[in-house]
Amino acid sequence: MSREDVLVSTEWAENNLQTTGVVFAEVDEDTTAYDGGHIPGAVKIDWKTELQDPVRRDFVDQDGFEKLLSAKGISNDDLVILYGGNNNWFAAYAYWYFKLYGHDNVKLLDGGRKKWELDGRALDKGEVNRPATQYKASTPDTSIRAFRDEVVEAINTKNLVDVRSPDEFSGKLLAPAHLPQEAAQRAGHIPSALNVPWAKAANEDGTFKSDDELRELYKTEGLDESKPTIAYCRIGERSSHTWFALHELLGLADVKNYDGSWTEYGSLVGVPIETGDGK
């Protein structure tokens, strides 16, 4: 798989805003950014209210995904370009989710909304309405999704990559520094996990680092490419960014995202937890 198969540049995006069969979708937790101006023609996907189950802690099921994409006017054969704020965290999460439900024709806008804005490219406040479709999703591909029992079994066996900041990893903080500190019952990390903050995979402008830089980064941090890998963070969005880097850009075969992440693991009764820098 090459980078062009999974990423588009902001320049490509601007040149393809009107291209038939290409749908842009902005994915965010806080959709006020979209409402204040979005890439012309892009539909809005609300991570919290549209991608998450409203009752259980899980994301929407296959039927819910079909209804969502149908309502957004996305067809099975459309090329979907996902982008968002927070350096594409939620867009990367949505990308993982599109793949999980079998939509292979999906790419990320490299650098996301930040790069688009830093480039000084136009934003549009107009309402976007696409005619509804009859979207059909596949059964979930759980080869890219890790659940808690598998994570506990992976301690000292598989690569566990904790992509949170060093202060969250060590147990000083329970959430990223720009968010209120609410989260799991306990702070720390899963024993044997490497701490490779997601941001190390990104440049300052939000674009992904080159394949060579990424390969060097994970090698230096101690990732054993011969073993399966599970990435986690706090709620599974930053780890989607790292899942994208490892699975989609570097092409490692067995990489899963643990979307339960620390808010689940750090509240489980009886599982081992490590604090400190882990080295």
């Binding site: 950014a33 350096n87 060093p166 520094a177 720009h178």
Partner: peptide
């Protein structure tokens, strides 16, 4: 942080 490592970003 003090080592120049990224800790967070807001707009």
């Amino acid at each position: 942080n003090a080592d120049g490592e990224f800790a967070g970003e807001v707009q």
